[in-house]
């Protein structure tokens, strides 16, 4: 049973489109559900503020939705992609694009739900600062979206770069690795950044004077949470733009694929862990304003240790790409 190259590319693009939208829908739906749940909780305690809470809920959900919209755009582009002159490497590239966008949208969608939900609950608790809460929610959830944007950048690069001059083996594996690296690593960073942002909205509602310190600590914590996704993006770029010498050996293909899988999975845990640490630091900065310095220091030390496993994963990936 053998098919021509154009058929394989069609099979890959349609599978990739399905994977991108299927996986990409998980996170946003969960995040928006969480937001709506907390909005209802807030409404029940302060029904007279229903207008503000409802408006904030919709704005927050719209941001969480953007991760799924990225996935939708990539999926539709894949479905109607003009394959051009068919070459077999294209099949691998589009499949990797779908995987990158699908996995990459999960974390950001879930993450953006936390600040949106906590802002809704916060408006019910402290209606006087609803403007501050909405602004803080927007900043926090915008940062949560960056891992999904990284995943989209990698997906578009994989779809529209011309790889026709590259050797099929082992470039097919490098491209799949590139998609998995950013896609999987984005899961942890997106959700982790969201945890920090959620705690900041909750804290501001509890103690509105703390807004300056809380937002600063949130941004620092989120920035550290994003680094595993940046490592994933770095490995993806290296895998996409390196010219691997032609080799039919299976091991030459497994090295770049292993590198991508290593950095992808390796970024999930540290991203989430950094977010967990930042969440509690932000939460307690709001309650204990004069202790901001000590809490930020402890947060950064704790995050640095948690980050080390992502650095191990990056080292192993780089060894797989450059040394082996």
């Amino acid at each position: 049973m053998s098919f021509d190259t154009a058929t394989w590319i069609q099979v890959a693009t349609f599978s990739a489109g399905g994977l991108a939208m299927g996986f990409g829908a998980i996170g946003a739906a969960l995040g928006e559900g969480y937001t709506a749940g907390l909005a209802n909780e807030g409404l029940s305690s302060r029904p007279e503020k229903s207008g503000d809470i409802f408006k904030n809920m919709l704005v927050g959900q719209a941001i969480a939705e953007s991760a799924a919209i990225f996935a939708l755009v990539v999926a539709v582009l894949l479905l109607f992609l003009d394959p051009g002159a068919p070459y077999l490497l294209k099949a691998s590239a589009v499949l990797a694009a779908g995987l990158s966008m699908g996995f990459g949208a999960i974390g950001s969608g879930v993450g953006a739900g936390f600040p949106a939900g906590q802002a809704c609950l916060g408006i019910a608790r402290q209606p006087a600062v609803s403007g501050t809460l909405t602004t803080n929610m927007l900043i926090g959830s915008a940062v949560c979206q960056t891992p999904a944007i990284f995943a989209m950048v990698v997906a578009l690069l994989l779809m529209f770069t011309d790889f026709s001059s590259m050797p099929l083996a082992p470039t097919w594996a490098a491209l799949l690795g590139a998609g998995l690296s950013t896609g999987l690593a984005a899961i942890g960073s997106g959700a982790g950044g969201g945890l920090a942002a959620g705690a900041s909205c909750e804290g501001i509602a509890r103690q509105p004077v703390s807004v300056g310190n809380v937002t600063t600590t949130m941004l620092v914590g989120q920035a550290v949470s994003q680094t595993p996704a940046i490592f994933g993006l770095l490995i993806s770029f290296i895998l996409i733009f390196s010219a691997f010498p032609e080799s039919a050996a299976l091991s030459a293909a497994m090295a770049p694929l292993g590198a991508g899988i290593c950095m992808g999975f390796g970024g999930i845990g540290p991203g989430l862990g950094n977010g967990l640490t930042a969440e509690q630091a932000v939460r307690w900065v709001a309650r204990n304003l004069e202790n901001t310095g000590g809490l930020t220091r402890t947060m950064l030390v704790g995050q640095a240790v948690s980050q080390s496993t992502a650095i191990y994963a990056m080292v192993v990936s780089l060894v797989l790409i450059f040394v082996i």
């Binding site: 942890g188 390796g266 989430l272 967990l276 030390v301 995050q303 240790v305 496993t309």
Partner: peptide, 10 residues
């Protein structure tokens, strides 16, 4: 370890 250390830090 990434998640576990994050929980400790939190």
């Amino acid at each position: 370890p990434g998640v576990g250390e994050g929980l400790v830090g939190s």
